[in-house]
Amino acid sequence: MNIFRLAGDVSHLVAIIILLLKIWKTRSCAGISGKSQILFASVFVTRYLDLFTIFISLYNSSMKIIYISCSIATVYLVYFKFKATYDGNHDTFRVEFLVVPVGGLSFLVNHDFSPMEILWTFSIYLESVAILPQLFMISKTGEAETITTHYLFFLGLYRGLYLINWIWRYYFEGFFDLIAIVAGLVQTVLYCDFFYLYVTKVLKGKKLSLPA
């Protein structure tokens, strides 16, 4: 464990909590892509199946339980409890265009052709594109609530910090996982446009609206 990975996990946890609180407090999931939330929930479920087979540490197991429960709770709030506020007309990204290629790729490019490893690989590839429905929805509505932009900031930051963690681990431990690194790069690059808008607009107190 190193500071960048810990900071990444904290940033990820903050993002998940921000979103959950936003929906719960405002009793509304306006501007939130339910499709992205479903993708994130499946990312966690497919990646953390080892929760029942391998014990790494209390931290590792508890974070996995928190991520899985919060992401499923968020999907529940969006599609059931606050369904009336779900903006389905703008949440129209065709997720099958993500899931099918990602599913195929995880069978072709993986570290080990075993069920657990293929599910882990699927989860890694899926996470790298899971935010696309959310970014697509923002481009369609042309704006995002400020709290939503903070959610996206911490969510994008987390994998960026993991990239630094992987540089650290390669340098000090000689460890590297090319699948996670390439997917993490793609994932972080997808946020670049948003990061630019976040820094130049939201941090200056303006609302995030597109076109920029």
Binding site: R5, D9, H12, D50, I54, I56, N60, M63, K64, Y67, N110, H111, D112, S114, M116, E117, W120, Y162, N165, F175, F176, D177, A180
Partner: peptide, 10 residues
């Protein structure tokens, strides 16, 4: 190259 299934990261 890490053996497949020893993923210790979240």
């Amino acid at each position: 190259k890490p053996k497949g299934n020893n993923h210790d990261e979240l």
